[in-house]
Design a protein around this nucleic acid. Structure first.
Length: 426
DNA sequence: TCTGGGGTCCTAGGACCC
DNA sequence: TCTGGGGTCCTAGGACCC
């Protein structure tokens, strides 16, 4: 058996932790730049606020109903996430936990006797609640995909399930699949869901009865085959090794307002590069390629509609590097090549690719210059910035005034990660 | 006026090699 | 004039996840 443990309305739950008066009251958390709603409590869902809905579209509902609004506060959520995951490791055993995202983890439970599963689930739920204050839902089933199905049903009817659902017997699995529309299956997105509906396949049970070869043809080859087997109770997805190094690192952001001026684009691109380089060094890698992109709005049917256009440009580095200064040099050059005056840019991004471990660096004999050993400098910058939780030291190219920075009108305090913002008890 | 920011995996097709 | 078959690598693009 496998389990998925999923925090309920995670970002909202983190905000409520330090604002107990918001219990039972509707809460939403906005995306970067305060653009869309990316987390809602049950009370906010009941008001009809949709996931991903633009903030300006639901502003009326929010104001009328006294919904509490927060900008996303990632340092806070990241820290609470670590506490939840640590609790799960204590309860299930380090080697049986796969952290899947900031608010979800899979557990491998094949060693647990079936009769003990429910007790274990209830204990996990209660302990996480007590130790971290975060409510979770738990789904258990023979495969990861079925555990996701169970978890969704556990969340849907909390009073009945107590946020725990276990699917073991064939009849339990069948009725759960019948209750699950295809678009809610893990691995079926908008595209495939529409395609399946057109073919008259509406729920997961119908899908699970289709032939495997049909899935190979219509659902993305081996991916579809794996999905079908998982729905039929045959595990194809095992727990992943933790700490997999990323193969690509990106830092991209919307601007707080449209940007015309190259100097602002240059600053933003330099700042994103510095951020990406920091992530790169944190996983002890070097980048062999750097790519920059910018996004502007295009016209659609001659009307002003949201229709973003992307322009990309990349550069193969003379040798793999994690040197912020060097990466900024190339990033700014690429940005200059992409830039056109008179276009209002909405967003920019930097992607580092061709990553290799930094002990495997092989110098290019034909590179024009050898790298200076700037490792010590980079380490010093990373240490200082980690200690002061921010950008105490930064490259001048990344700007001082930062007019392009995103909006964050409703950010809560970094209660657990910044000295100046600690929670106070009087 | 205002629409997130990261990632992953897989496939198809072209270039090239022997 | 006739012109194989199999392998690898790379890139672009499509699909998905939270």
């Amino acid at each position: 058996m496998k389990a998925i443990v999923d925090c309920n309305s995670f970002y909202c739950a983190c905000e409520r932790l330090f604002r107990p008066e918001l219990h039972q009251r509707p809460v939403v958390v906005l995306s970067n730049n305060d653009g869309c709603v990316i987390a809602r409590t049950d009370e906010a869902k009941q008001l009809g606020i949709a996931m991903g809905e633009p903030f300006f579209q639901c502003r009326d509902i929010i104001e009328k109903n006294g919904v509490a609004v927060f900008s996303s506060n990632y340092p806070l959520y990241g820290d609470i996430s670590l506490r939840v995951m640590d609790t799960l490791r204590r309860l299930a055993g380090e080697e049986h936990v796969e952290v899947y995202s900031v608010d979800e983890a899979f557990l491998e439970l094949s060693h647990v006797p079936p009769a003990q599963l429910r007790g274990m689930a209830v204990n996990i739920r209660n302990t996480v609640q007590q130790w971290t204050g975060i409510p979770v839902s738990i789904g258990m089933a023979p495969t990861k995909t079925l555990a996701k199905v169970a978890n969704r049903l556990a969340k849907k009817d909390k009073p009945r399930t107590g946020c725990v659902m276990i699917l073991a017997a064939p009849h339990e699995i069948q009725s759960a699949l019948e209750e699950t529309p295809v678009e809610d299956i893990w691995g079926i997105g908008r595209r495939y869901a529409a395609k399946l509906n057109r073919m008259g396949i509406d729920n997961a049970w119908q899908l699970s009865k289709m032939p495997v070869e049909w899935a190979r043809k219509h659902l993305g080859g081996v991916v579809g085959v794996r999905l079908m087997r998982e729905l039929n109770g045959e595990p194809c997805l095992t727990l992943q090794e933790p700490l997999t190094v990323k193969k690509q690192i990106a830092t991209t952001r919307m601007f707080g307002k449209p940007v015309f001026d190259f100097s602002e684009i240059r600053e933003a691109v330099a700042a994103y590069t510095a951020k990406a380089a920091e992530k790169l060094r944190r996983q002890s890698s070097l980048a062999g390629m750097i790519q920059v992109f910018v996004v502007a709005n295009g016209k659609k049917n001659e009307k002003y509609e949201y229709n973003p256009q992307h322009w990309y440009r990349y550069h193969l580095l003379p040798y793999p590097t994690a040197d912020t200064g060097l990466l900024i040099h190339y990033a700014v050059r690429l940005a200059a090549e992409l830039f056109h005056p008179d276009i209002r840019y909405l967003k920019a991004g930097v992607i580092l690719g061709e990553l290799i471990p930094d002990n495997a660096a092989q110098m290019n004999l034909f590179a024009s210059g050898l790298p200076h050993n700037r490792r010590a400098l980079m380490q010093a910058i990373d240490n200082i910035n980690a200690a002061y939780a921010g950008e105490a030291v930064r490259y001048a190219a990344s700007g001082i005034r930062r007019l392009w920075k995103m909006k964050q009108m409703h950010r809560s305090r970094c209660y657990t990660t910044r000295w100046e913002e600690l929670f106070e008890v009087r």
